[in-house]
Design a protein around this nucleic acid. Structure first.
Length: 628
DNA sequence: TTACATGGTAAGGGTAATTTGAAAAG
DNA sequence: CCTTTTCAAATTACCCTTACCATGTA
């Protein structure tokens, strides 16, 4: 699937000169002369005014402050549009200079010169290689982001690249990156780094990796590995040459070589190996058996001394098991799960990246290491199929509810997120309290049904309750007549993964939830006699039933049927794929209790999340393609 | 020449996700 | 007893920083 056609992509090439003023409410008004709008024949001289209002969902110290820009309606014919402008670090300037001229012009010399007048982007406009440089800047109060790039950062980067390309009339970014000379691409990196709190060299590397198509090739085959060994013999550490010969990037082959020491064992560690590992670690770090050692270890040296294992194996064994074992660690329990979620919630961080795992892990005997704890969090988090889309706070609250639910562990159905009505692009967080949704499964005694058992039986699902819904191959909704109530109907030849036993009605989960009148009735028309006439009632507004099948997307036909119903307009439970990024994708969702192995996350990732811009991150794209 | 900006490499610490394999359950 | 499922350990593809070097240029 291609995300390139995400609708509503923002056009950034409306090159006009604009003027900021401030109104009495403190809003910044952006006056924008209507001359340069490209092909627009209607040379409407009416100036377009935009109001900049601070987006307060995003005021964490580490994330860029962003301003939403809305057009103020001037006339009916005025094509309104909406832009989100990231104004990182420019905030202060904007606030103190109530009036300034900014030229967003074709020539990005202008662009940079207007920035140059200040140190607003000191971080992203410097190459900087040393720690001291970093410290100096940080001490001066500049933000310095490092570590994994967040989705937001990538979006900014992609947008920057996009507008650079548009300004230059270049189609393919790889032209600039791999073909142009230094001179020709002068200022490329400088321009695209704008708005990011990372030094240029970080941006530079990120971009190289992103667009190097020899970099996301996937698993090494056995032949490749053999060939790699040969090449290694021949060329030593000349990774560029080896990579070229293999059709892989230099860093890829370098990394692969790190995994294979000729003397490496695989599989389970022997006691002797473990003993040696412990000895070596303690020796190299000047610590004693029983001490917690979670950083400051040179794993390359450790591996050398251990002899039979690679550095990664050593590190992994130590941080995920051995150190904990030796310092008297205790087993991780379900309670620990809950405790972890609570602890994280207590931190009240806006973003996962702000969590200090070292501190969190301190004095917690069932935690094997901070690194391990972090991965533990990941496994918890990934039980939520769409965790990638959910705002951190929502995810957290949802998990907390789930974990604390007193309900029996069997048949737990959890849904995170609720529908935030329509339209209003209101803050995604806070208001939307994830709830557990009671799901009732009853037999329907409706209409026809020739089935012999009007009595109903318990419905148990293969293993996790929601699997039933996930596996629904396709369906459509039919209004039942009762407002907000629909039949959700599957195709006749598709059997639900439901089996009936002998029990009348079953509530899959019974958590406290806001009473809600809205119901969805699922009516299976499966040919399978056992599953005939099964109705699933769910009472909650805005449940999204995500059809996640192995073939990915729901049947488009059914989708369209679904959306034609007028009263589905507000409550329409399933619309995600359709609606793309029209703003209502916030927060509604579905947790799944099923093993992660099953859920293809590919279809719920980027499309609805990619906010603006028409470029796709090739890395993401690659991952999607690969996940088939 | 120095000093500095830019662009580049190798090494290695790290993360995120999948694969593997043994134990538990059917 | 055999097969399937489950779950944690092991593995691996990929990511990011640091240190250091090369070259261009003011």
């Amino acid at each position: 699937m291609n995300t390139g056609d995400v609708s509503g992509a923002v056009t950034l090439d409306s090159v006009n000169s604009v003027t900021f003023t401030q109104d009495t409410d403190g809003n910044i008004i952006l006056h924008c002369a209507q001359d340069g709008l490209g092909s627009d024949e209607e040379a409407e001289s009416m100036p377009k005014r935009l109001r900049l209002s601070k987006d307060d969902t995003d005021d964490s110290p580490d994330t860029p402050s962003s301003y939403s820009v809305f057009t103020l309606p001037i006339s009916e014919s005025d094509e309104s549009f909406e832009v989100t402008m990231t104004a990182t670090e420019m905030k202060d300037e904007l606030e103190e200079q109530t009036k300034c001229d900014v030229c967003i012009s074709q020539e990005d010399e202008n662009l940079s010169s207007s920035h140059k007048s200040s140190d607003m982007s000191a971080v992203s406009q410097a190459w900087f290689t040393t720690k001291e440089d970093k410290d100096t800047l940080v001490n001066k109060g500049h933000k310095w982001k490092q570590g994994m790039w967040s989705k937001e950062e990538i979006d900014i980067l992609m947008n920057n690249i996009d507008s650079y390309l548009k300004n230059r009339g270049i189609q393919d970014p790889t032209e600039i990156i791999f073909e142009m000379s230094k001179e020709e691409r002068k200022d490329f990196y400088r321009s695209i780094a704008w708005g990011l709190n990372r030094p240029l060299f970080a941006v530079y590397r990120r971009v190289l990796r992103m667009y190097d198509n020899r970099n996301h090739v996937g698993k090494y085959t056995q032949e490749e590995i053999e060939k790699l060994k040969d090449l290694r013999q021949k060329h030593g550490n000349d990774w560029a040459t080896i990579g070229a010969a293999l059709g892989r990037s230099a860093s890829s082959v370098k990394d692969r070589c790190r995994l294979m020491k000729d003397t490496c064992n695989t599989g389970k560690w022997t006691e002797e190996e473990e003993r040696r590992l412990a000895e070596v670690v303690h020796e190299l770090t000047g610590t004693e058996s029983g001490d917690m050692v979670t950083q400051g270890v040179s794993w390359a040296s450790v591996a050398d001394m251990v002899g039979t294992r690679s550095e990664k194996q050593c590190r992994s064994k130590w941080l995920n098991y051995l150190n904990w074992k030796q310092s008297g660690g205790t087993e991780w329990t379900k309670e620990d799960d809950l405790f972890l979620i609570r602890r994280i919630a207590e931190l009240e961080v806006k973003d996962e990246n702000e969590i200090n795992w070292d501190i969190l892990a301190e004095g917690w005997s069932s935690v094997r290491s901070p690194q391990w704890l972090r991965s533990k969090w990941w496994t918890i988090k990934r039980q939520v199929a769409n965790h990638k889309e959910l705002p951190f706070a929502v995810l957290l609250k949802g998990l907390q509810d789930v974990a604390e639910a007193p309900s029996p562990p069997v048949n737990k159905v959890v849904v995170v997120g609720s529908r935030s009505a329509n339209a209003s692009p209101s803050p995604v967080t806070a208001l939307q309290i994830p709830v557990q949704i009671p799901v009732q499964i009853t037999h329907v005694s409706s209409s026809d049904s020739a089935s012999g058992t009007p009595e109903s039986g318990t419905i148990t699902l293969n293993s996790g309750a929601l699997q039933a819904f996930e596996l629904l191959p396709s369906f459509h909704l039919q209004p039942t007549g009762t407002p907000g109530t629909y039949f959700l109907q599957t195709g006749s030849n598709q059997s639900l993964p439901l089996t009936l036993t002998a029990n009348p009605t079953v509530t899959l989960t019974a958590a406290a939830s806001p009473g809600s009148p809205d119901q969805i009735i699922l009516h299976s028309l499966s040919a399978d006699s056992l599953t005939e006439n099964v109705t699933v009632q769910m009472s909650h507004p805005g449940i999204i039933i995500q059809t996640v099948t192995s073939e990915d997307l729901p049947d488009p036909l059914n989708q369209s049927e679904l959306t034609t119903e007028q009263d589905l307009a507000n409550e329409e439970p399933e619309s995600k794929e359709k609606e793309e990024n029209s703003g209502i994708s916030d927060g509604t969702a579905l947790i799944v209790p099923s093993p992660s192995s099953f859920i293809p996350t590919s279809d719920i990732t980027t499309d609805s999340v990619l906010p603006v811009g028409s470029l796709t991150d090739p890395i993401l794209q690659n991952q999607e393609e690969g996940s088939d």
